[in-house]
Design a protein around this nucleic acid. Structure first.
Lengths: 156, 156
DNA sequence: ATATCTGCAAAGACTTTGCATGAGA
DNA sequence: TCTCATGCAAAGTCTTTGCAGATAT
């Protein structure tokens, strides 16, 4: 059965019920928005998209829900240096969405890349193993970003 | 001659003069503070430390100077997810301070590690090369962070 | 029934900006 | 001298919190 839908509704319902969290309209709308994009959305972005599905949902709820999802490990939170956090679905460390980022320090453009991920992942898993042991950490995820000037900004 | 001091004063004076920036008391104090620690300082941390050297320097100047140093590539700016930016001296991509981070998502503790850097650097340089070519980016630096629970937080 | 969740408004925290004064080259 | 830098105060932005009413289980 493909990831996504089972008998009891969307896949994440189980995670929610198991943790004692309630399945509500705002939460469903927020997860729907996150599932339907490949972009890195800010809280405001999510809020505006959710607003089209369910106009009564407030920005506060968006923030609270995103925090909850991050804590549950369902969503990753990123910082690209422009002062607002970005969010995207996690879907597992080797899941179909996993990628790293290339960030332009001038215009803020962010490119997702997956080209070199396989080699990176291999090395990272070794590193994770070594680090976990040495520092007694439970490592849950990682972040790799390259910074520089994009093609449009480098000739300036 | 060791990096650090030449005839005309500290090493960064040349960089400043060359770029048309002035060498001022606040800037010297801020760079002195950054050179004398291995920690990741917030703007407020820098401000307080600078205040002991030169009490007239304001927080605004600290922010402005840190931004300048980041733009010049002399300082890196990090985000560990606690809402305030951290700064530390760059000293070159293979310089003596280069390291990656291990961040506890529960208590916010940050550990610098250098153990696996050599293998990582090698892979990263290949990746950088590939990315630069494919996306036509001038890559200046990278960020690698592992997230998880530290030994104190995992038993909770 | 009741503990959780939500929306609104207000507060909080970090960072940036305007402007007149002061200082480096 | 003359442009650049600084400090203060105020404003700006993103994010969090308090609380009463609404909702899921």
């Amino acid at each position: 059965m493909p990831r996504g839908f089972g008998h009891g509704g969307p896949w994440w319902h189980t995670r929610f019920r198991g943790a004692g969290f309630r399945i509500t309209v705002p939460r469903q709308a927020i997860l729907e928005v996150l599932s339907k994009t490949q972009k890195h959305l800010s809280a405001e972005d999510v809020y505006m998209a959710v607003h089209r599905i369910c106009p009564t949902v407030g920005l506060t709820t968006v923030y609270r829900t995103l925090e909850l999802l991050v804590d549950m490990g369902l969503v990753f939170k990123f910082d690209f240096g422009d002062g607002r956090a970005r969010y995207e679905l996690a879907l597992g460390p080797k899941g179909e969405r996993h990628h790293h980022h290339l960030v332009c320090t001038n215009c803020g453009r962010v490119i997702d890349y997956t080209e070199f991920i396989d080699d990176e992942i291999e090395l990272l898993q070794q590193t994770e193993k070594g680090l976990s042991k040495k520092y007694n950490f439970d490592i849950t995820h990682h972040l790799i970003q390259f910074y520089g000037l994009c093609d449009k900004c480098k000739g300036r």
